[in-house]
Amino acid sequence: MSDSLALKVRNPWSLVPSLGNLDAYITAVNRLPLLTAEEEQDYARRLQSKGDVDAAGRLVMSHLRLVVSISRQYLGYGLPQGDLIQEGNVGLMKAVKRFDPDQNVRLVSYAMHWIKAEIHEYILKNWRMVKVATTKAQRKLFFNLRSMKHALKEHSDHQQRSSLTESEIAHVAEKLNVKREEVLEMETRLSGGDVALEPQTDDDGESYAPIAYLADDSQEPTRVLEARSRDHLASDGLKQALDVLDPRSRRIVEERWLKVNDDSSGGMTLHELAAEYGVSAERIRQIEVAAMKKMRKAMTANVAVAA
């Protein structure tokens, strides 16, 4: 079958192999002919007015090579090109669906934005387990820092130097409208390699991965002391702090903060305590505040003694 008839077969998708064989896929899409402006307009109008799925398919197929070309720009992130192409194809289909033939713009120009956006989103979600970019400015920094570093090296006398100078960092930060610290952090993340927590093979009993020697924070001395102090304050410390209060103040604190009824409704309200003691709710609140201050002072002293 000649290339001129390639898009006229009953099932044009049969011409494109799966992405499992990447080389065959790229060869096939590069052989598909491009549409003329008139053909593109005709297919786009058929899709827009009649929802013609066949017309949509032909618009997509004629631009598959564009996705392959764009995907090559993102090979430096260590992700399979087949996955990048697949995500880019999703963006292409979104572009075809939204394409307006009356805007006097070729689909290739319109689709580039959608293809790149879909690939960007895929990279941000899958390049590292930790997302490295959240804000719009950080995303711009993520996808432009590598190319900007390359351009700076080409104009530098020290092309073998891998890190940026202070002036170069300032230039990048100003150009991309981000902070100097964000440039440094992103450069560190881009230059750092991923390390597997689990061992990659169990053939050698001497092989170790980070999971084998990560520290247990729960046994770190300061954490042990913090846990002991917390347990002391929750038991003996609280009892000793309550002992410094007069009976009325102690009952108010216990009713307000420490008592839990069978229905989990808590103790008495300020108004209920005010009615019992024959004073205003504001007076009960003042007594409560003063009592809490005394308890806090007593508990602080207990912690110092325990230490």
Rank of each mutant, 00 (worst) to 15 (best):
R106Q: 05
R106L: 10
R106Y: 10
R106E: 03
L107H: 07
S109G: 08
Y110I: 00
Y110L: 00
A111W: 05
A111F: 03
A111Q: 01
H113W: 00
H113A: 12
W114K: 01
W114G: 02
I115C: 03
I115N: 03
K116L: 10
K116T: 14
K116A: 12
A117Y: 08
E118F: 14
E118V: 11
I119T: 00
E121V: 04
E121L: 08
Y122W: 05
I123V: 09
L124A: 09
K125L: 09
K125Q: 07
K125V: 07
N126C: 04
R128S: 11
R128N: 04
V130H: 06
V130L: 06
V130M: 12
K131L: 05
K131N: 13
V132F: 03
A133I: 03
T135S: 04
K136L: 07
K136R: 15
R139S: 08
L141K: 02
L141H: 02
F142Y: 13
F142W: 02
F143Q: 06
F143T: 10
N144S: 09
N144W: 04
L145Q: 00
L145Y: 04
R146F: 07
R146K: 14
R146T: 09
M148T: 09
M148A: 02
M148F: 15
K149L: 14
K149S: 03
H150F: 11
A151P: 14
L152W: 00
K153Q: 12
K153I: 11
K153T: 06
K153A: 02
E154I: 06
E154C: 05
H155P: 08
D157I: 09
D157M: 06
D157A: 15
H158G: 15
Q159M: 15
Q160Y: 06
R161Q: 10
S163A: 14
L164Y: 05
L164R: 00
L164P: 06
T165K: 05
T165S: 09
E166T: 13
S167I: 08
S167T: 13
I169R: 00
I169V: 07
H171E: 06
H171T: 12
H171N: 09
H171L: 07
V172A: 02
A173M: 08
K175D: 01
L176F: 10
N177I: 02
N177A: 10
V178D: 02
K179Q: 12
K179F: 07
R180G: 06
E181N: 04
E182R: 11
E182P: 01
V183W: 02
E185L: 03
E187G: 01
E187H: 06
R189L: 08
L190W: 11
L190Y: 12
G192V: 03
G192F: 01
G192I: 00
G192C: 07
G193S: 13
G193V: 14
V195T: 09
V195A: 05
V195F: 04
A196G: 10
A196R: 14
L197G: 09
L197I: 09
E198K: 11
P199C: 14
P199R: 07
D202S: 15
D202T: 15
D203H: 13
D203V: 13
D204V: 15
G205A: 12
G205N: 01
Y208D: 13
A209G: 06
I211N: 08
A212K: 08
Y213Q: 03
Y213D: 05
L214V: 06
